[in-house]
Simulated assay, not measured.
Amino acid sequence: MTAAVARPGRRLVQPSILPGFPLAIGITLAWLGLIVVLPLIALALRPAEIGLSGVIETLTQPRVLAALKLSFGLSALAALVNAPLGLLIAWTLTRYAFPGRRILDALVDLPFALPTAVAGIALTAIYAPNGLIGSLAAQAGIKIAYTPLGIFIALVFIGLPFVVRTLQPVLEDLDTEVEEAARTLGATDLQRTTRVVLPTLFPALISGVSLAFARAVGEYGSVVFIAGNMPLKTEIAPLLIVIKLEEYDYAGAAAVGLAMVGAAFAILGVVNIAQNALVRRGRA
């Protein structure tokens, strides 16, 4: 066994059990730098062409503000709806055995497997006024496709697997003996759910909701077909970036993209702080 190395004026340094750490950390940092850091730096530098005043002017345009509000607002709403829906599906797939469970479990991954454009076309065909569900809704005076409601449905569709797949491993590892102990002590089903199960699931649930939100904010292919793409009404921010690129307004597109990245980082930072607080509270 290798002894810890003592250095004058320093604490004992325990050698790593795994060999090759310098090479591993070097490859990790280089890969992340090329794939993540450099694109973000380029995104941050490109708006400098139009200056701070140009960036502010771009981001305060009514069309840009409407697109950002629509994308972030509907993404947050879809992620919140996916929270109880994903929890219910994960609970059903984990705790119950029934015919067709494996098929249902595989269907959860369908939004992952489908190309986003195919998903958008399929959703549009279903929810359009002449579609299977859209025609029934039209008879009740409800229009789904080419409205914010259609965008919301598409975002729920693509975000649901993130919540389900994040919760499933936690539910599978959850010790049922704790629930049985609570039952023995006289806890009702509601008390066992709210005081035993849910506190354990909250950190994973927040992670799943965060992933669903992050995916929804940047979603393009599955939304652009069902959105209708009407400026100030159903135009999402990713589509507006594409439009600016087609107009050769690269600095303006980068400014909108940078605003989306900044807002997403801020929201996810708050979510991570809340998640860590819940974890520390659970350990206390």
Rank of each mutant, 00 (worst) to 15 (best):
A67C: 10
G221L: 09
P8E: 06
P62R: 11
F152D: 00
S222F: 03
A76K: 01
F265R: 04
T60I: 06
G228Q: 01
L32I: 08
T60W: 06
G186D: 04
A237F: 02
P22C: 04
G228Y: 01
L171W: 08
V37M: 11
A214G: 14
A90V: 01
T188L: 07
I241K: 04
A3R: 12
Q275M: 10
Q14I: 14
I236G: 00
S71M: 09
V224D: 00
F213R: 03
N82P: 08
K69P: 01
A277C: 02
V271R: 01
G282I: 05
L149D: 03
Y127H: 08
S16D: 11
L110Q: 09
I121S: 01
R10M: 12
L43H: 15
F98S: 12
G20Q: 08
R165A: 05
T2F: 10
P15N: 11
A117L: 10
I41L: 13
L32K: 00
A48K: 08
L18K: 07
I27A: 15
V108F: 01
A67E: 07
Q168C: 00
I50G: 03
I41F: 13
P47Y: 00
S207N: 07
T2L: 13
N276M: 08
A4V: 15
T28Y: 11
R192L: 02
G73C: 09
A237R: 04
K69M: 07
L136E: 06
A6H: 13
R195G: 04
